[in-house]
């Protein structure tokens, strides 16, 4: 961790219009994330944590506010520039893995490199090395349906690394995995952080906090303190016991 600000967010708002209802997913978020940090974003469902991740990854556009990643302002980028930003700077890991079911593990990992104009030989070499790195050297020819959830998520992590991105964004990466497997995935992400990458993980699993260098708590689209978050998280249980 070098301490320089890698991500700077100012007054970030995202509002969805659903018919006549306006849903404020993010209601003025400010934060600075240092380069090389491992940030865990905690929050209950609907708190806006996934929205924050997608905005950081350039998959969505903010309603207002500014997002600077490595000095580049995402809010002013056009579609093409955002695609190039996603290709060069960001690696995504999704809860649902999002692997192409007809492709083998090797082909899935090599897939993003088609869009960068990397030749077939180099694509396969790089994909093979990454799958070896995530412990799947013996599963290169396996299709997603022939692998466990943990193995699929490892393939997804390997795919996220193909362009050697500086930022890894993971949306509930352990959400579909059992406890042990989920823990091993978090360890893998932690290793990537230790290699110098900036990692941001969205989760509502508090056990993941042990890997974090930074923690962000979100409630109703706002960044809150740990105390406020814990108080809000505990409230329903107290109400339940009282009832």
């Amino acid at each position: 961790m070098n301490g320089d600000v890698f991500i700077s967010i100012r007054q970030l708002r995202k509002t969805y219009i659903m018919g006549r209802v306006r849903v404020h997913a993010l209601a003025g978020v400010d934060m600075d994330i240092p380069a090389g940090s491992f940030t865990v974003v905690m929050g209950p469902s609907g708190s806006g944590k996934s929205t924050l991740l997608y905005l950081l990854g350039g998959l969505e556009r903010p309603t207002s506010g500014q997002i600077l990643v490595d000095g580049r302002d995402l809010s002013v980028m056009d579609e093409n520039a955002l695609a190039l930003y996603r290709r060069s700077t960001v690696g995504f890991v999704f809860q649902q893995f999002n692997l192409v079911s007809s492709m083998t593990a090797l082909e899935n990992v090599a897939f993003p490199m088609r869009f960068s104009g990397i030749r077939t030989g180099e694509r396969l070499t790089r994909a093979r090395a990454l799958l070896t790195q995530v412990g799947l050297a013996t599963h290169l020819k396996h299709r997603p349906t022939e692998m466990s959830g943990g193995q699929q998520q490892r393939v997804a992590i390997a795919r996220a690394l193909v362009h050697n991105p500086r930022l890894i964004l993971a949306d509930e990466p352990t959400g579909n995995l059992d406890t042990v497997t989920g823990y091993s995935i978090m360890q893998l992400l932690s290793e990537l952080h230790q290699q110098g990458r900036t990692v941001m993980v969205v989760t509502h699993d508090p056990r993941m906090l042990r890997f974090a260098t930074h923690t962000v708590y979100l409630l109703d689209g706002r960044v809150v303190s740990r105390e406020e978050f814990e108080k809000a998280s505990a409230l329903p249980q107290e109400e339940k016991s009282a009832g």
Binding site: G57, L59, A83, R87, F92
Partner: peptide, 13 residues
């Protein structure tokens, strides 16, 4: 979803 994935990994429109 595959289209979403393509865009997420850097495919342009």
């Amino acid at each position: 979803r595959e289209i979403g994935l393509m865009k997420a990994v850097g495919a342009t429109n």
